[in-house]
């Protein structure tokens, strides 16, 4: 039962990303061409409202359901890994048109060739894990 809420959030997430067309290769192409406000509107309102949610929760000391104060673990400091990793990610995102959430959602919409992208993404993550200590971070 304790997993039911995560299943429901996942279903909601999948529906929202399809109905918003944020899972569409075409929308991502259009975004990187700066030819529509659509994706910027989605990301902008999500970040704006997300920031407001987090700010209000922290200010009012809102507790999560486990009874702990809402606190996000900060990312490690650094520059290299974020700019290099981010650029590599961006190249793949604009080519395949799917990031790590939408790839599963798109599989659910019936695009079974997405299995290849998911398998390759797992392989990419594996290769990163093996090379991790040799890469600049």
């Amino acid at each position: 039962m304790k997993y039911l809420k995560f299943l429901l959030v996942g279903i909601f997430f999948g529906i929202v990303l399809v109905k918003s067309e944020a899972v569409s290769w075409y929308r991502i192409f259009e975004m990187f061409k700066f030819q529509s406000f659509h994706m910027y509107g989605i990301i902008g309102t999500a970040v704006g409202l997300g920031a407001l949610f987090l700010w209000v929760s922290k200010k009012n000391n809102v507790k999560n359901i486990e009874g702990n104060t809402i606190q996000l673990v900060p990312k490690d400091k650094g520059y290299t890994r974020y700019i290099l990793g981010g650029t590599i990610f961006g190249l793949g995102w604009a080519l395949a048109g799917a990031c790590p959430g939408p790839m599963y959602i798109l599989l659910g919409t019936g695009v079974f060739s997405m299995v290849i992208v998911i398998a390759a993404a797992i392989l990419g993550t594996f290769v990163y894990g093996v090379l991790k200590d040799k890469l600049p971070h």
Binding site: K75, D76, R81, Y82, L84, G85, G86, T87, I88, F89, G90, L91, G92, W93, L95, A96, G97, A98, C99, P100, G101, M103, S113, I116, V117, I118, A119, A120, A121, I122, L123, G124, T125, F126, V127, Y128, G129, L135
Partner: peptide, 21 residues
């Protein structure tokens, strides 16, 4: 195209420590 695209997403996201979400 699909293998390289997926590989770059998987490698890049872990290197960068996160993705779009």
């Amino acid at each position: 195209i699909l293998v390289i695209g997926g590989f770059l997403v998987g490698f890049g996201t872990r290197y960068a420590g996160g993705c779009t979400s």
